[in-house]
Design a protein around this nucleic acid. Structure first.
Lengths: 333, 333
DNA sequence: CGTTCTTATGACAGCGCTAACATAAACCCA
DNA sequence: TGGGTTTATGTTAGCGCTGTCATAAGAACG
């Protein structure tokens, strides 16, 4: 029942040409007479030929894979980066090969090793916080390496992102400029999420520059979530009832905080300002649009992909593409 | 600078064994003396050997890929399915190879063709609404085919999901049982999303069984989103001001509707009941947890992956695994 | 009309690995 | 002690494709 898969040879025989000619037609490479092309196409159709990329990869020692390592699929942030990557790759023959590290450096290393076994022509990884082995593998692979999201740290090849520390700093400046002085922080378990920590440090630095410090901070155990914000904001308020603003590690948590305010009858902005991070759809959809930072995630993915296509060989010098960010004024701070 | 990649032969030479022995050590297959294994492992370490899976795939004509085709990455629904797939595959040597069809049947077909070129050992696709060519390719591929989400339609091999029509029907029964009679519907552009349409049909059928019909319906243009719900609910109310319940195509839209009620001072449930679909985190995090249907998306992905591992060869008979669903009572209906 | 260039095609080797079959040594039990 | 079994390793022959170089037939040119 499973029909024996036709190979190039079968197509070539049927079309009355050599294998290499069929190969050229399939890949659209090299000069082919129109008449020959049609004959070959006909044979391909007739046999239902599907090329074997494993053989192609082996023969040319160049796969069409781009290895992608993302830290999480628990919220929409990295799926958006991935969409950007697919968008940037659209129309090209390249195919992403995805691994999810769950914010675990060792797992990232494992995934990288298994991705490299497919001879990818590039590796995209979200983050710059790698194990030594990971860095070595990336560096020695010789293929293009794009590190996404954060511009701090020492690039292997190309970096696409922005400074999370600076974004945190600017968030603090924004609040200070609007008169908030007693600022609390709601975070999550950031042992893994280095970028969250960088934003936090930026925020603290902004406060320090004005002679302030965080009034209080609380940290959820698990990954960030809306319910996490709903749970943690009351704890923050218990620790420091007189704060006038709460900064959240991201929009998920901030929206949860907003819901707590709704339920507890706290007047948002007037009694308590809320500030998030990421610029998620949900944050802008709540009745009072969230004050937050737009992080251009889709763009980051798209640019990474486009850069790889534009320059498939690793250049001699490293480069940093700053995609910037933008404070969204919102209505909550 | 890019060091020549060591091959099996290099490892074999250094370890003083034959290539096949190294291959066996790498794959953990066949009997290997502990001493030999250590020697080979040492050589692998020393050379930084990374196996070439393209060669392995070609030689064994069995890749470790599982082709996955999902319709969208625009909301968290399919990333959750994907997480389930990764979870189910954890610890196995299999690697998902993802394509995103954007709810486009022709694109699904293209993606399938390109995935098949990698000789996947299975294909997971979300949905049963394929082009004829897609169905033929799936069927003739000879590998395991899992169609996710919906149990209606004619399976190629394995189906994992539940009946969306029935879920829509039960949503209608739920509302009717609670005394709602003037029911409106907020949908989106479902030309592509067949499952949304099935739920709608189930809902209409439930109403018809009680001698009722939809009081009004509106459809957003684009894909579903929170802001879409915020925009469309007022239109529904304009079309039928006296409705006592609104059913939304999914939770994103329903949450948007909830926000509209907040902003417009509509007492949710008392003046207007809201009902969603999917059981997203955000729906349960709003101050009044959304009445909706839990669709077990993570489980669907996980079960699909586990089934493939448990039975990697396509069996003679088709099978349907019903993952069920669950009405979440919530506070909005 | 020979020379050079361009276009179209083919022959052949080999990419790096593994299936299948051999071989050899060690072990087992009556 | 000798056949049978198990364990450990090797030999050989490709898997299906593409890079490289070769070839042939026109076209272009002075």
């Amino acid at each position: 029942m499973p029909p024996i898969k036709p190979t190039l040879t079968d197509v070539a025989r049927l079309a009355g040409v050599s294998e290499i000619t069929v190969s050229r037609v399939v890949r659209g490479k090299g000069p082919i007479a129109e008449e020959t092309r049609l004959r070959v196409r006909g044979a391909i159709e007739a046999l239902g030929y599907v090329p074997n990329r494993a053989a192609g990869t082996l023969a040319s020692s160049a796969s069409l894979f781009i290895g992608v390592i993302l830290p999480s699929m628990h919220n929409i942030v990295f799926p958006e980066v991935l969409r950007g990557i697919y968008e940037g790759l659209a129309g090209s023959p390249y195919q992403p090969l995805l691994g999810v590290s769950e914010y675990d450096r060792d797992k990232e290393q494992e995934i990288l090793a298994s991705l490299l076994a497919w001879q990818p022509m590039a590796i995209i990884t979200a983050g710059s916080d790698h194990t030594d082995v990971t860095r070595r593998l990336l560096s020695e692979s010789g293929v293009r390496v794009v590190e996404l999201m954060d511009t701090e740290g020492d690039p292997v090849d190309l970096v696409v992102g922005f400074s999370h520390r600076q974004a945190g700093y600017d968030s603090g400046r924004h609040l200070i400029a609007r008169g908030y002085r007693r600022i609390g922080y709601v975070g999550h378990d950031w042992a893994a999420d280095r970028r969250a920590r960088l934003r936090y440090e930026g925020l603290v630095a902004a406060l320090a520059d004005t002679g302030l410090s965080l009034a209080a901070e609380v940290h959820a155990d698990g990954p960030s979530s809306v319910t996490g914000g709903t749970e943690m904001l009351p704890r923050l308020l218990a620790a420091a009832p007189d704060i006038d603003a709460a900064v959240f590690v991201n929009d998920d948590m901030a929206v949860g905080g907003y819901f707590h305010c709704l339920a507890a009858g706290i007047a948002v902005k007037k009694d308590l300002a809320l500030f998030g991070f990421n610029g998620l759809d949900i944050g802008q959809a709540i009745p009072m649009p969230l004050s937050t930072v737009r992080s251009n995630r889709f763009e980051i993915g798209r640019i990474a992909a486009e850069r790889i296509i534009a320059e498939p060989k690793r250049p001699a010098v490293t480069e940093v593409v700053n995609t910037g960010y933008e404070i969204i004024e919102g209505a909550t701070a």
